[in-house]
């Protein structure tokens, strides 16, 4: 099996990739065609549904604004995401090391997070203003929670037999944590990191809709209020692209680090 000629496997990989790619590409073409066709057939005005070209042209014309908004949203969500991830992991390590602290604090954390995080949005705006800090704060809370829950599950998932084995080697709790628990928890932590991307983006966009000076969510909100629907579509489209980009990067890092 292993001595199969390299070009043959390469060809097979290409064929496989091709057979994976053409159906969604076909779907995209069909959807775009249906989009165009329904506008043409039902004579839909652009405030109901603009054509894809209109959206694309507007995106290129207003690229300065779009990039500015994208940057604002990207900064909020990334700062919140990174800080939240670090915080979540830190709390998880704290909880695993001091189970008493966990017993006291985890229920409070769960209670706070049993309210959909967007409902805290108006409060965050009142307390912290319409700038980036209100968005970043909520993102930190939400992201740290999903990392915490996943990391706790992961840190607890490793085989007790392996832990006892390391103990018989005279390993300290710290060594066990670094050498055994943390590596074992990596897949769970990364699945938390993956889910948290969309949480961060949702909060950034939704909070901007509530109140902001810039950002993609703010532009979506402002444009719909001003009946500039093409601009709203442009901003929604940019949101989708930004999220997929962040997600892909996180996913890629995850695959590099957690190859097992």
């Amino acid at each position: 099996m292993s001595d199969m000629p390299a070009n043959k496997t390469g060809e097979g990989a290409w064929r496989r990739r091709y057979s994976l790619l053409w159906p969604p590409a076909l779907a995209a073409i069909l959807i775009l065609a249906a989009w165009e066709l329904s506008i043409w057939l039902f004579k839909l005005p652009n405030f109901v549904l603009p054509t894809p070209q209109e959206i694309l042209v507007a995106a290129i014309q207003d690229r300065g604004q779009v990039l500015h908004d994208t940057w604002a949203t990207l900064v909020e969500s990334l700062v919140g995401y990174v800080a939240g991830s670090v915080l979540g992991l830190g709390i998880a390590l704290l909880f695993v090391t001091f189970p008493r602290v966990e017993r006291a604090l985890l229920p409070a954390y769960v209670t706070i997070n049993s309210v959909p995080m967007v409902a805290y949005g108006p409060l965050a705006i009142i307390w912290l203003g319409i700038g980036a800090s209100s968005k970043i704060t909520l993102i930190i809370i939400a992201v740290s929670y999903s990392i915490l829950i996943n990391a706790l599950a992961g840190l607890r998932s490793c085989d007790p037999g392996a832990i006892s084995l390391l103990r018989t080697f005279g390993a300290s709790e710290r060594t066990i944590l670094l050498k055994l628990r943390l590596p074992a928890a990596m897949p769970a932590i990364f699945s938390g990191l993956r889910v948290a991307v969309v949480h961060a983006m949702i909060l950034a966009v939704v909070l901007e809709m509530l109140g902001a000076r810039e950002g993609l969510g703010w532009t979506v909100f402002k444009s719909t209020q001003m009946m500039d629907f093409v601009a709203a579509w442009v901003a929604v489209g940019a949101t989708v692209i930004v999220s997929l980009a962040i997600y892909s990067v996180v996913n890629w890092i995850g695959h590099k680090l957690v190859w097992w």
């Binding site: 969604p24 779907a27 405030f47 969309v198 949702i202 966009v205 939704v206 579509w233 929604v236 997600y247």
Partner: peptide, 28 residues
């Protein structure tokens, strides 16, 4: 075939704040 055409988009939607489309939905 339907699965192969659409499922990738369904799965990708999980990584996107599709709530942003809400503004357009309310418009509609």
């Amino acid at each position: 075939l339907l699965e192969r055409m659409l499922l990738p988009y369904f799965v990708a939607s999980q990584a996107v704040p599709i709530i942003a489309f809400g503004a357009i939905i309310v418009m509609w």
